[in-house]
Structure formats: C-alpha cells, structure tokens
Amino acid sequence: SPTVSMAELDHQAQIISKSHLETCQYLREELQQMSWQNFLQDEVESYQSKPREVMWQLCAVKITEAIQYVVEFAKRIDGFMDLCQNDQIVLLKAGSLEVVFVRMCRMFDSQNNTVYFDGKFAGPDVFKALGCDDLITSVFDFAKSMCSLHLSEDELALFSAFVLLSADRSWLQEKLQVEKLQQKTQLALQHVLQKNQREDGLLNKLRCKVSALRSLCSRHTEKLSAFRAVYPDIVGTHFPPLYKELFG
C-alpha cells in the first residue's frame, strides 16, 4: 500500500506479537511440558457425570478467564484504544470468543485430539455433560484444522488481531477507523507471511477461517439460549458477570 511503509508494518507486527506473547495465558513451552497429562478414564467419567448446569458453569468460567486475556491483548494493539469506546466494546463483544477459538490451537494436541482444560488435556468426551456434542465436535475440528496450518506465534498474533478488528461488525460507529486498522493489520500479516516464506495460499486459507469462527460463535450463542431457557436462574446467579455481559 502506498500509504503504509514497510517500517510501519514491521512496527505493527512487532507490537501485535509482543501483545500476544504478553497475554497468551500459557506459553507454548508450558503447554508442551504438560502435554503428556491426559485425563484418566475415571476423571473423564467424573466430568461426564457432573450435572449439566455444573459443567456449563465450569466451561463459562474457563471461557471468561480466556476472554480476560483477550481483552488485555486488544488493549495493547496499537490503535485499538484510540477507537471510540462504543467500537471497542462492539469489537470485543463480537470477537473475543473468536480469538479464544483461534488461540485454542496453541493448547490443542492434534495427535490425541485433546485440548488443555482444567489442568490436563481433555478429549471431546470430557464435555459430554454439556449436551452440545455437535458444537464440541466442531470446536475440536476447527482447532485441528488451525493446527494443520502450523502458524508461528507472530502469525497467530496477527491473525488474532485481524479477527478482532473486523470492520464488518454491526453497530460500529466509526467503521472507517476500524477498517483502516484492520487493513493495516492485514498488510502486516501479509508482510510477516512473506518474510516467513509461507506458501502463497495461506492468507486465503486464513480468510476462510473467519467464516468458520463466526459459525462457531453463533452456535455457541444458540446453545447458550437453549441452556438458559431450561436453567434461567443458573445463568443469572452462577455464571461469571463478564460472560453474561458478552453473551447475555
């Protein structure tokens, strides 16, 4: 782009990578050290026999924790805090769970089809009590396909920022500002992909992931509504307030 210099793109890429590493919740090395710790069969059964509402609450707590790190990530992206408050909220409300799903591939073991959850690596069967097998399968499939792209931390950081800064979210007040920021992030991502000598089609593959992420999040909302219809008091009194703000 004639309006953004290479130096600016390098700077943007560096800031976003740093922000990602400072807020990624677990370092890759930490996760690698824990990778041999899978839940034993009796532990799996104990999750499966939890009441549905207890498992929902546990997952809501874990999601909320992960989202708090995403909020910190957003705050450190150059330009995010210059957006108006309405737009900061809109972007986080729509995109924070999407970033959690993107980040999940760092905590995912493709060989065993397990994800780091509540202290150990868990397969899809651990989440049976939620009563959302189809959504869980889709989330695991998404993590597996993200893993197959073998993104480096800086690529993952820039893709997360690109997802968060989506300029097509409803209710943005200063759409043009967000568009500019997203465009700059996309150029920085492109720049890093070139620098890392990644294959030509990777950016397109990543663009395809955006629609998969939207579908996962809308299905999460549907499942939550169905759950809330049966357990309105549980959501109202036992779910983390931030979770309710974002998805309520």
């Binding site: 705050k75 805090m81 408050q85 986080l92 703000e245 974002l246």
Partner: peptide, 16 residues
C-alpha cells in the same frame, strides 16, 4: 454503558 460495566472497567484499567 451500564450494560457493559465490566467490559468498560477492564478497558479502563491500565495495562500491567
């Protein structure tokens, strides 16, 4: 604003 009180608060807290 009241609807997103916690998010506002998290955004306003300085980064540590």
């Amino acid at each position: 604003k009241e609807k997103h009180k916690i998010l506002h608060q998290l955004l306003q807290n300085s980064t540590s």
